[in-house]
Amino acid sequence: MKTLPRVLIVEDEPAIAELIAVNLRHNGFQPIWAMDGETAQRELDDVMPDVILLDWMLPGESGLTLARKWRASSRLKVIPILMLTARGDEPDRVAGLDAGADDYIVKPFSTKELLARIRAVLRRRAPEQAGGAVRLGDLVLDADTHRVSYQNQLLKIGPTEFKLLQYMMSHSERVHSRGQLLDRVWGDHVFIEERTVDVHVKRLRESLGEASNMVETVRGAGYRVTNAPLTPAQLKSA
């Protein structure tokens, strides 16, 4: 018997949580409701969901704090997080993405949009799921063990950044536009802005540390991963 995808709803307003849960059940999902971070953590300790719908404003720890905490967990970092919030300004969207959210949904939202975004994050969890290792100089990504290392040192990389790096390393030296990366890494039915790519590239570079300059910005075109990064002088003149 096929198991229904589990969706953890972390929302302190019962009416909103129930509306989401009813629509999820009617569309082939198994919703679990937690009204705060403490309850959500107990659910996560019990059974891992497939997706987390996380409200920004919660009693106790905020959704932003919880997203950061769960992204720092080796066990929970692979679970897609969709941030639900009434805060729709660009700085708030960027803050949500920087905290570890994979997508950002502004209240009020339509049920159809919510369901589409949930399906999108489930589809794009591994659109480039070729197994085995990809090596580019001293940078190695192993899709089977979900590990990245540089000069034999393991790096801590989030799930979306891992998929982004996997795709770009598998197509190294090519320039990829933001739109192409959204299609290939996130999926071709997403509703997020191209600005999202910039946020995740920034996070990827931070995670790569000394290897960060292997991810190049090609002005007016997009990004590429290269084994021959530009020198500081070249970067300055680029």
Score class of each variant (00 low, 15 high):
I192R: 09
R25F: 02
R184P: 10
V94C: 12
P5D: 10
A120C: 10
M57V: 15
I157Q: 04
D102I: 00
A99N: 07
V47G: 00
V134R: 13
Q129N: 12
V134M: 07
Q151D: 09
V121S: 10
Q30Y: 11
V106A: 02
Q234T: 04
E206Y: 13
M48H: 09
G100R: 03
H176T: 13
E194H: 05
G137W: 10
L208T: 01
D45E: 12
E206G: 13
L154W: 06
W56D: 05
D92F: 08
G187C: 09
L165T: 01
L136V: 10
R93C: 01
I81P: 09
M35W: 04
V22G: 03
V199K: 02
V47I: 14
F109R: 01
P49H: 03
L204M: 07
R87K: 15
E18V: 12
R25W: 01
D183M: 07
R87T: 07
R125L: 14
N227G: 11
G158P: 03
A211G: 11
T160K: 11
P80A: 04
L115I: 05
H26K: 03
M35T: 15
G63A: 01
A15Q: 14
D98A: 11
P91G: 03
L54E: 05
P14R: 02
E128V: 14
V7I: 13
K77C: 10
L53H: 14
S149V: 06
S237R: 15
R6C: 09
I9L: 08
T231Q: 02
G137Y: 08
P159L: 03
V175E: 13
L181N: 00
H189Q: 15
I79K: 00
D138R: 05
D46S: 10
T85K: 05
D55G: 02
N213R: 15
E113L: 11
V148D: 07
S149C: 07
V215F: 01
L182M: 11
F191R: 10
P159H: 07
F109T: 00
K156G: 06
L58N: 03
E38T: 09
D144M: 05
I32K: 09
S237M: 11
A120I: 02
D142C: 14
R6H: 09
P80G: 06
V175P: 12
I16P: 06
E11V: 08
M169L: 09
R117P: 08
S212F: 08
D92G: 13
K202F: 12
D102E: 04
V197R: 05
R68N: 06
R203W: 00
E216I: 03
R68I: 13
R68L: 05
E113S: 05
V47T: 08
R123H: 15
R6M: 03
A126R: 08
D103H: 09
R174M: 07
P108G: 02
G37K: 03
R125F: 12
R6Q: 15
A101R: 01
A67C: 15
I192Q: 13
P14I: 11
T217K: 07
E210R: 13
E193P: 02
A95V: 08
M48D: 12
G179K: 11
T85Q: 07
V140G: 00
L58C: 03
R203I: 10
E11H: 13
D89W: 01
D198F: 02
V190M: 13
R117S: 05
R71H: 02
H171K: 06
Y150I: 00
A228P: 06
A221D: 11
D142W: 01
E43T: 04
M48L: 12
